[in-house]
Design a protein around this nucleic acid. Structure first.
Lengths: 185, 185
DNA sequence: CCGCTCATGTAACTGGTTACATGATTTA
DNA sequence: TAAATCATGTAACCAGTTACATGAGCGG
């Protein structure tokens, strides 16, 4: 019935629901591919994550599926229900979820806290390796940005630029520490 | 025996091990408190996470515990074993773990991708709420930085400044989108 | 003596992970 | 026709989550 309180979706469930909305009607496989190929390594996009998530969304009445055929190939086309759209809007906010606002996790930043435990030469090696890798990330993101510079919505662009800003921030963090260590001795 | 391949620790396990090393010998409770009170909301620091992690570390011979008494209060003091120190050094790298280098997750960035699904006025509200909250974060981090500006190691400082840079990056992402939406119509 | 902090845990649950499994269709 | 891709799933596992539970010592 209207007004039933639906369980808050997990981040992945929300992403799957969102992709079904923006890309859909589409197959679970298509969603899976998008998640898998996204630059972020947040989720594996494995079948073992996506299909159960889709099943949960359908159980909760947030999406519905119907058989379809793309040429000779048959598959299940997914699309959000009205309830699903409300659920995603409420997940998005406002009010913006407090958990989404807090300082985001960064495994590299965590490692910096314990870097003092390594010998100085290994510290330096750590930093130069990390800096090289992160620089490669910025190039990858820039390329991705340029590649679809034309038709992209301001939202997707903002997301990609957000990733770029975040990556530059990490680079700054690493460079600052390297400089501090050099000038320290 | 030497050369036994130990299972790669989870991020939390590594943090617990690292804290036991840098803060230790200390109790599991002390570790729990540090994780809980850290600015990052990455982990809850709940007993249900920390105590099992400590138990796993001890099972694997990475830490050892001995009874101690702080005044009349008795507790278990934890400290890393030689094997534990090697395990942490190997977790830290170099070589730096590939998973630690990839573009870090950001629940706010994820939401931007789907923001187009909201009505324009709700989009604006979302952005202004988020910007306000993130600005508060920058203040909190700056305060934290100033508070312990004196005796802090360059590593802890780098970590805090990394969080600051990351937060500013998010702010930039949000402000850019807001400006793009304003000048769009 | 009452409430707070120190201190250590357990139980039920959840939603991810990797790996395995199957089969149809398309493309080189 | 062989390999790749589309498409959908399952099974075992794992490390977190919240909530519950207990008890000692310390400070007002």
């Amino acid at each position: 019935m209207a007004g039933t309180i639906t369980k808050r979706p997990s981040e992945l469930e929300a992403v799957v629901l969102g992709l079904i909305w923006t890309e859909g009607p589409c197959t679970a496989y298509a969603v899976r591919r998008i998640v898998k190929d996204s630059l972020s390594t947040q989720w594996s996009g494995s079948a073992g994550a996506v299909y159960p998530a889709v099943a949960r969304l359908e159980e909760r009445g947030l999406i519905r599926s119907r058989a379809q055929a793309t040429g000779k190939r048959q598959s299940l086309a997914l699309e959000p229900t009205a309830k699903g759209k409300r659920a995603l809007a409420s997940w998005l906010g406002p009010p913006v979820d407090a958990g989404a606002l807090g300082i985001p996790a960064d495994p590299l930043r965590v490692r910096l806290r314990f870097l003092e435990l390594l010998a100085p030469e290994r510290q330096a090696e750590f930093l130069s390796q990390a800096i090289t890798a992160i620089k490669a990330d910025t190039s990858r993101i820039k390329l991705d940005l340029r590649k679809r510079a034309r038709d992209e919505s301001p939202f997707e662009k903002a997301m990609a630029r957000g990733a770029l800003h975040a990556t530059r921030a990490r680079l700054r963090m690493l460079a600052e520490l390297r400089d501090a260590l050099v000038t320290e001795n």
